[in-house]
Simulated scan of single mutants.
Amino acid sequence: MNFSGAYTALVTPFRDGKIDEERFREHIEWQITEGIHGLVPCGTTGESATLTHDEHKEAIRICVEQANKRVPVLAGAGSNNTKEAVHLATFAEEAGADGTLLISPYYNKPTQEGIYQHFKHIAEAISLPIVLYNVPGRTGSNVLPSTVARLHKDLPQIVGIKEATGDLIQVSDLIEQCGSSFTVISGDDFTVLPLLSVGGSGVISVISNLLPNKMASLCTAWNNGDIETARKLHFEMQPLNRAMFMESNPIPVKTALALQGKMDTDFRLPMVPLAEANLERLKSIMTEAGLL
């Protein structure tokens, strides 16, 4: 499967310390109605690092059920523990996900060979298409283009990567070394349009939790050759993109959804509510964007 276009890195609504299934299903349904191209449960934006294994599985199950094959579900199943990642990826496959998103091992800081062996071990345990996730700012290590090219060559089910380095030289090197059969997806809402311009395929987006139609329209406009519309949408979203990272993701985006009445502002420690001064800034930016 080719994971292209705009995919939403879904927030995970909580209520009373548990996943709020009703609000989660409503959010997924709204995303599909608004024209999003795909869904990603249990990523960074979904607070995956603080979900129990049972909750992680529950979030994937709910998303797969609610999507009901109307759009692809790329289920987050990564871990810095290879055995744990195999367990979660195996569940994603059993639950009916269309693919799995696997972050590179965080905290351990493995060598490039260790990163290669980690992903190779997971790929040999499942048959789902795999999209890698490279975000050095959170993991402490960078998955180099040469390592990605080696993985794609040796393990064809590794079909793409979510690139969140913000480094367009690295993106260009990836596309050059991996070839047109490999999907490079932006993991950074600021760089979707530049990434598309060098041959990227789309985005796994935070802001599309709020603006699914606009982000999907940007990708569609680019693919249709309507560069002017894509550029217009890019700049329209930039103020809100900046607001989504005024504090650590997903604090601002979940707060924004709560301000719209779509879910509670319920975070898992060590995530905490948005600072009061930033809350006022967020309200102002959302009002200007027509979201409040």
Rank of each mutant, 00 (worst) to 15 (best):
M1G: 12
N2F: 02
F3S: 10
Y7F: 15
A9L: 02
G17K: 08
I19T: 07
E21S: 09
R25Q: 11
E29Q: 14
G35T: 01
V40N: 09
C42G: 00
E47K: 04
T52L: 07
T52M: 01
D54G: 10
E58F: 00
C63E: 10
V64G: 05
E65W: 01
V73T: 05
G76K: 00
N80C: 15
H87P: 01
A95K: 03
L101M: 13
L102P: 14
I103Q: 04
I103V: 15
I103H: 02
S104P: 00
P105V: 06
Q112N: 11
G114I: 04
G114D: 10
I115E: 06
E124W: 00
A125E: 15
V131G: 07
L132Y: 09
Y133K: 05
N134G: 04
N134L: 03
R138K: 09
T139Q: 06
S141D: 02
S141P: 00
A149R: 01
R150Q: 11
H152Q: 11
D154P: 07
P156T: 05
I158C: 08
E163G: 09
D167F: 01
I169G: 04
V171G: 13
S172Q: 15
G179D: 09
S180R: 14
S180E: 15
S181D: 15
T191G: 01
V192H: 03
L193E: 08
P194Q: 10
P194H: 02
S197H: 11
S201V: 00
P212R: 01
A216D: 11
C219V: 10
A221Q: 05
A230G: 13
R231W: 05
K232L: 06
Q238R: 12
Q238K: 11
A243V: 04
S248E: 13
P250N: 02
K254M: 13
T255H: 13
A258I: 06
Q260K: 15
K262G: 04
M263R: 13
F267R: 02
P270W: 05
M271T: 09
V272M: 12
V272A: 11
P273W: 03
N278Q: 11
N278R: 12
M286D: 06
M286W: 10
E288C: 00
G290L: 13
L291F: 11
